[in-house]
């Protein structure tokens, strides 16, 4: 199963490091990353493969969200199908 992680918030040192550390710990493979900074706001979108993850989706989501709170960022993880079904016929 693939999921999309989005990270939005004020730019600071170590955002990608913090998020990818959690993913590595959880055996989640990063397939693609794109990021940009606009008016100091950092926007990162990651496509990940969670089929070999060693924790449940819920635990992973909680870990990412609490890391987001710690760094004052909004971090979301969503199944990629929501985007596919909305934007592709």
């Amino acid at each position: 199963m693939k999921a999309v992680i989005t990270v939005i918030g004020k730019d600071r040192v170590g955002i990608i490091a913090a998020i990818s550390a959690i993913l590595a710990e959880s055996n989640v493979n990063i397939l693609d990353i794109s990021q940009t900074i606009m008016q100091e706001y950092f926007t990162m979108i990651m496509l990940v493969d969670i089929s070999k993850s060693n924790i449940s989706f819920n635990e992973l989501a909680e870990k990412l969200e609490s890391k987001g709170k710690e760094l004052a960022l909004s971090v979301r993880i969503q199944h990629e199908d929501i985007f596919n079904s909305m934007h592709r016929i």
């Binding site: 979108i45 496509l47 985007f83």
Partner: peptide, 17 residues
């Protein structure tokens, strides 16, 4: 995002959702 050659979802669409 490119996957197997086909453009999958793009960031604009992700942000729109």
């Amino acid at each position: 995002y490119r996957q197997g050659g086909a453009v999958m979802i793009n960031s604009l669409e992700i942000i729109e959702t």
